[in-house]
Design a protein around this nucleic acid. Structure first.
Lengths: 156, 156
DNA sequence: TACGTATAGTTGAAAATGTCAACGATTTAT
DNA sequence: ATAAATCGTTGACATTTTCAACTATACGTA
């Protein structure tokens, strides 16, 4: 069989089950788009030695909001111990710095270094390209609508 | 994500970091809604000794489409070896049965038993309730729109 | 037909990720 | 003052992911 015919058949078999009722399940749709998107995103970020998560931490560290590690854990839906590992690695690479919290000295705020900001600026370009790829089937208005609905579902 | 982390997040003071640019990132939004949704779904399915994944397999086994394990792996974005484990457990509980593929004897189709169908009917009620909870901030039209956009992003 | 190649399911091992409980240092509440 | 709670951290443990084999079967071609 030719490679082209192989691809056609693979696509056809993949599509056969789309008729199943699970395709109406939001949990399934989110899981599948998230899974596929993560592959694309991580591939795009690999050249900067970042993954989705370290990229997220870097964005927040660079936001000017001076997030604490606890806030990062809450927003990223991760265990605090995972934040420790992520910040450890970014700090080792001099992309972010920890600083004691101003009101609460138990807390540590995470801020991007200038090196971190520069890397982020480059990575963000690749990430935007990856997002376009993931949402290629949607036009700009639909993509914006999807984002708005996801934000509303999360925060009302 | 832990149930405790999810509860904390729901009750925590208004998330100040939502203003950060990462809230515009589709990957982040998908990850977060999926993470929160999984907690809700798995909690709802726990009384049937199911998780999101075994529930998904059971739905597909009950769809009448007689999916092969390979098709399940493709649709659910899972490694074939994970499907083996999922089907093994459902088969041990007599909820699904393996049958050799009709055209291809290498393949094994997975179909729900009547016991599986009955359990699924109950679990689906809990799953629908969970979905309503996850999408509580959206009205019915918005929820349908979200699903349609996710499906379009996935399959065009 | 027979042969080489490809694929479905399975197993098991290794790596990555997730979960959880404890601890010191602080903060908050009583 | 004291007790309780919180933040970051560590380390143990569980789960999930990833990948490389292996068998049985199917397919392609000479």
């Amino acid at each position: 069989m030719t490679i082209e015919a192989q691809d056609e058949q693979q696509t056809a078999t993949k599509d056969r089950l789309v008729a199943a009722p699970i395709s109406q399940d939001v949990g399934f749709l989110l899981a599948k788009l998230h899974a596929g998107g993560s592959v694309v995103n991580n591939r795009a970020l690999a050249e900067f030695d970042l993954k989705e998560r370290s990229y997220s931490v870097l964005i927040l560290a660079n936001s000017g909001l001076e997030p604490t590690q606890r806030e990062l854990a809450d927003l990223l839906s991760l265990d605090p111990s995972q934040i420790v590992a992520l910040v450890d690695e970014l700090e080792k690479r001099k992309l972010v710095a920890r600083a004691p919290g101003k009101q609460d000295r138990r807390a540590k705020t995470v801020t991007a270094t200038s090196k971190g900001s520069r890397l982020l600026a480059q990575a963000a370009i690749a990430a935007r390209r990856a997002e376009s790829e993931v949402l290629a089937a949607l036009d700009d208005g639909e993509a914006a609508q999807l984002k708005a609905l996801l934000r509303k579902a999360l925060w009302g």
